[in-house]
């Protein structure tokens, strides 16, 4: 057997954490993702499965922060579902079993990098990064936007000072650079 060591999106053996007085940027290595797109004519059946899985269907611009599976709306009849990687590493296969022919399921864990930004200055930092109305957003609000020329999802999490950013994994270091620059600029 091969003895392979996984690395994080930023290339480390453990997720990177950058702590400032006013903000903490944490690379979150523990999320498994898969996208779900309802097939034509099967939208209602797809929503039914989603409701059973998450407790509710994520509406436009909203997430359902359910445990263990959570999900947010990406567009009409399209959702991103996530769950802890330790228990759901094969989330796409697990979801495909549930959705069957009602939806197309694509594994997304390898496509996205996840950063958690927490701290008193979260809103100030977010305003420097992207054009989302962070001060109006409440827990569970999701926006797709552009950060540093990269298409990202910005999710307001349950804690008042916590925002989660999903960005393209292949540009993880670029996105991290943008986050670090913004954090330094509000110090």
């Amino acid at each position: 057997m091969h003895d392979l060591q996984t690395i994080t999106a930023l290339g480390g053996a453990t997720p990177r954490v950058d702590v400032f007085n006013h903000i903490t940027i944490t690379e979150n290595d523990g999320v498994a993702l898969a996208s779900v797109a309802a097939r034509l004519g099967r939208e209602a059946a797809c929503r039914k499965v989603l409701k059973k899985l998450l407790g509710a269907v994520p509406e436009t611009g909203r997430a359902v922060l359910h445990d263990p599976e959570a999900g947010f709306c990406m567009g009409p009849d399209q959702w991103m579902l996530g769950a802890p990687r330790v228990s759901h590493e094969l989330i796409a296969d697990q979801l495909k079993t549930l959705f069957g022919d009602n939806a197309s399921v694509t594994e997304q864990s390898g496509a996205w990098v996840c950063f958690d930004i927490t701290g008193a200055a979260m809103r100030d930092m977010c305003e420097r990064l992207c054009a989302v109305p962070i001060r109006q957003m409440v827990a569970g609000d999701v926006r797709r936007t552009v950060i540093h020329q990269l298409g990202c999802f910005v999710i307001r999490r349950t804690a008042d000072d916590h925002v989660r950013i999903f960005g393209p994994r292949a540009s993880a270091a670029t996105l991290h650079h943008a986050l670090m620059t913004a954090a330094a600029s509000i110090a």
């Binding site: 990406m74 567009g75 009409p76 926006r143 797709r144 936007t145 552009v146 298409g151």
Partner: peptide, 16 residues
């Protein structure tokens, strides 16, 4: 020169 129906792509949004 006037009213025109055109396609726009929400690239920095929900990609619709």
């Amino acid at each position: 020169a006037g009213w025109h129906e055109e396609l726009w792509f929400h690239e920095a949004g929900d990609r619709s």
